[in-house]
Simulated scan of single mutants.
Amino acid sequence: MNGRTTVAHRILQFNEELAGTTLELPPGFTVINPFSGPQQERVCEVTTAFYHKYYDDHEPRRLVLGSSPARRGTAVTGVPFEDAKLLESETGVDVDGYAVSRPSAGFLHDVIRRYGGRDRFYADFVMSFVCPLGLVRTNPKGNEVNCNYYENKKLLELLRSFLVDTLERQLAFGTDTSVCYCIGSGENFKFLSKVNEGQRFFQRIVPLEHPRFITQYNREREEEFAEKYLSALRGEGD
């Protein structure tokens, strides 16, 4: 760990490097890069305020990894799983016009609140993605829709080296590699586990159901899944 820079500095430097990233994708797929897009100045302002508020220290944290940013969520704000309205209230930065309320963010924010609040949660964890840039595909109707890196064999093939490289670079945040939490207990967990078999980035990976799966298809079990998240994050049963 580089003691001369804070965790905030390292995360923001990682984002700056992402700003200059170009990726080869199959026809019909597009990258959404919040760090080099039309709102990059606003994104820079928001992310700088957020990370300096919660990560201006040198303490190790564990990674919580989703698959990739949603085109109307993190791909807009630049802060993983944070809703724009909540970011505005937390950082004081005006993100008017991008205040899209996401059910996934709502579930996770409830977990964060029950964990002990943002200060405590972000002191222990960094939330990020296996693929830190947003991906969209054009559907048969000509509309752009969210896409995950694993949805298409050719897409995954072209992205694989980028995914492995950015996973390794995120360890430079000063990450506690004893455990990683994977949001998405299906294909995201499968890919991350396979990479980890070869790279040994983490001692173990704990899968957690995706909040969208919970809120859209299992709302009656939301309390059960929230408790599962909290138990895993607190290390209960280890």
Results as ranks from 00 to 15, higher is better:
residue 98 Y to T: 10
residue 157 E to Y: 13
residue 47 T to P: 01
residue 156 L to S: 13
residue 221 R to V: 04
residue 127 M to E: 10
residue 16 E to D: 15
residue 31 V to T: 14
residue 20 G to R: 07
residue 106 G to H: 14
residue 15 N to A: 07
residue 186 G to W: 02
residue 60 P to G: 09
residue 135 L to V: 00
residue 106 G to P: 07
residue 10 R to I: 07
residue 89 S to G: 05
residue 112 I to H: 00
residue 208 L to N: 07
residue 11 I to Q: 11
residue 125 F to Q: 11
residue 35 F to S: 06
residue 127 M to S: 13
residue 45 E to W: 04
residue 49 A to L: 06
residue 32 I to N: 08
residue 187 E to N: 15
residue 188 N to A: 04
residue 194 K to Q: 11
residue 182 C to G: 09
residue 219 R to L: 15
residue 84 A to M: 03
residue 176 D to I: 00
residue 185 S to P: 06
residue 105 A to L: 04
residue 218 N to I: 12
residue 218 N to M: 14
residue 238 D to C: 11
residue 149 Y to G: 04
residue 158 L to W: 06
residue 204 R to G: 07
residue 35 F to N: 06
residue 100 V to Q: 08
residue 212 R to Y: 11
residue 96 D to V: 09
residue 214 I to R: 01
residue 155 L to P: 00
residue 35 F to H: 06
residue 238 D to R: 13
residue 150 Y to K: 01
residue 56 D to Q: 14
residue 149 Y to D: 05
residue 38 P to R: 15
residue 60 P to L: 03
residue 71 R to D: 12
residue 149 Y to H: 05
residue 150 Y to S: 11
residue 28 G to M: 03
residue 236 E to M: 13
residue 15 N to K: 08
residue 144 E to T: 10
residue 105 A to V: 02
residue 78 G to A: 03
residue 159 L to H: 03
residue 17 E to F: 03
residue 187 E to I: 06
residue 229 Y to M: 02
residue 147 C to N: 07
residue 180 C to K: 02
residue 128 S to G: 13
residue 132 P to V: 07
residue 180 C to G: 05
residue 49 A to E: 12
residue 129 F to N: 10
residue 92 G to W: 05
residue 206 V to I: 14
residue 82 E to K: 12
residue 233 L to P: 05
residue 73 G to P: 01
residue 199 Q to M: 14
residue 160 R to P: 00
residue 111 V to Q: 08
residue 48 T to C: 10
residue 33 N to F: 04
residue 131 C to E: 07
residue 67 S to E: 14
residue 145 V to E: 10
residue 164 V to R: 06
residue 223 E to I: 11
residue 176 D to V: 02
residue 189 F to Y: 09
residue 33 N to R: 08
residue 98 Y to V: 11
residue 148 N to H: 01
residue 62 R to N: 02
residue 115 Y to Q: 11
residue 221 R to T: 08
residue 181 Y to N: 04
residue 12 L to P: 08
residue 223 E to W: 11
residue 46 V to W: 05
residue 165 D to T: 03
residue 134 G to L: 03
residue 212 R to P: 02
residue 135 L to M: 04
residue 87 L to D: 00
residue 238 D to K: 10
residue 109 H to W: 09
residue 80 P to Q: 08
residue 75 A to P: 00
residue 13 Q to S: 10
residue 231 S to H: 10
residue 172 A to Q: 10
residue 103 P to G: 10
residue 100 V to T: 10
residue 172 A to H: 04
residue 37 G to V: 11
residue 79 V to E: 01
residue 36 S to P: 01
residue 3 G to E: 14
